[in-house]
């Protein structure tokens, strides 16, 4: 379901680097997402699937489950569905968010944040659309030069260590604000 028709790499393994257990779960839980939600040519991660690790590939992806790590589909569209929860940086041609994201979003062409979305992180894309009602905390980079520079660096050699919204270095022209690693409540609790 997650990678229908996905070609295997020469060494017999999958191209994506994901937690092995997640693959096992994926195989067992084929019906986790209704077929109506899986259009042809779009891979999907069903709502019962949780993946810890890095995703890479060459096809569009819809996420209704959970992903922790990094998602790198530089030439494709990533959709985080209403049920989707990701704690990951996303590098894609286009990103559409309907669910929950904690991480930075890099869209080479476009990023759209729907009204049902809850995003904590930074958005770097030449075109950004936001729907009223979306929850967003972070920054939106709209300076074309900074976007170009950030995307150029971000799409170079994949990082070995996933960077997330909680404050690790970003490859960008200007430093992007880090979303908070913990809630302000946690900060207060730590101090009181």
């Amino acid at each position: 379901m997650f990678e229908r028709g996905k070609k295997e790499s020469p060494d017999g393994g999958r191209e994506e680097q994901v937690h092995q257990e997640s693959w096992a779960n994926t195989d067992r839980k084929e019906p986790a997402m209704s077929s109506s939600n899986v259009s042809q040519g779009v891979a999907a991660i069903g709502r019962s699937i949780r993946i810890n690790g890095d995703l890479q590939g060459e096809e569009d992806l819809r996420i209704e489950g959970e992903v922790n790590g990094t998602i790198r589909l530089n030439n494709n569209t990533v959709t985080i569905g209403q049920e989707g929860k990701i704690k990951a940086d996303v590098y894609a041609k286009s990103v559409s968010v309907e669910g929950t994201v904690e991480g930075d979003l890099y869209g080479a062409e476009h990023i759209s944040v729907r009204k049902s979305a809850k995003v904590q992180g930074n958005i770097i894309s030449p075109r950004v659309s936001l729907e009223d009602g979306a929850r967003f905390k972070g920054s939106i980079e709209m300076d074309p030069e900074a976007v170009k520079s950030a995307l150029g660096e971000a799409t170079q050699a994949p990082r070995t260590t996933p960077k997330s919204a909680n404050g690790k270095g970003a490859a960008q022209a200007a430093p992007i604000a880090s979303a908070k690693p913990a809630s302000a409540e946690a900060a207060a609790a730590a101090k009181t």
Binding site: D132, M142, A146
Partner: peptide
């Protein structure tokens, strides 16, 4: 404040980065 599409559009024509704090949450 809370993220507002019109504010993003307002600054969209400029060389801007917009930081959204949504302090109301805190």
């Amino acid at each position: 404040g809370k993220v507002c599409p019109q504010v993003i559009t307002l600054f969209g024509g400029h060389r801007c980065r917009v930081e959204i704090a949504e302090v109301a949450q805190e």
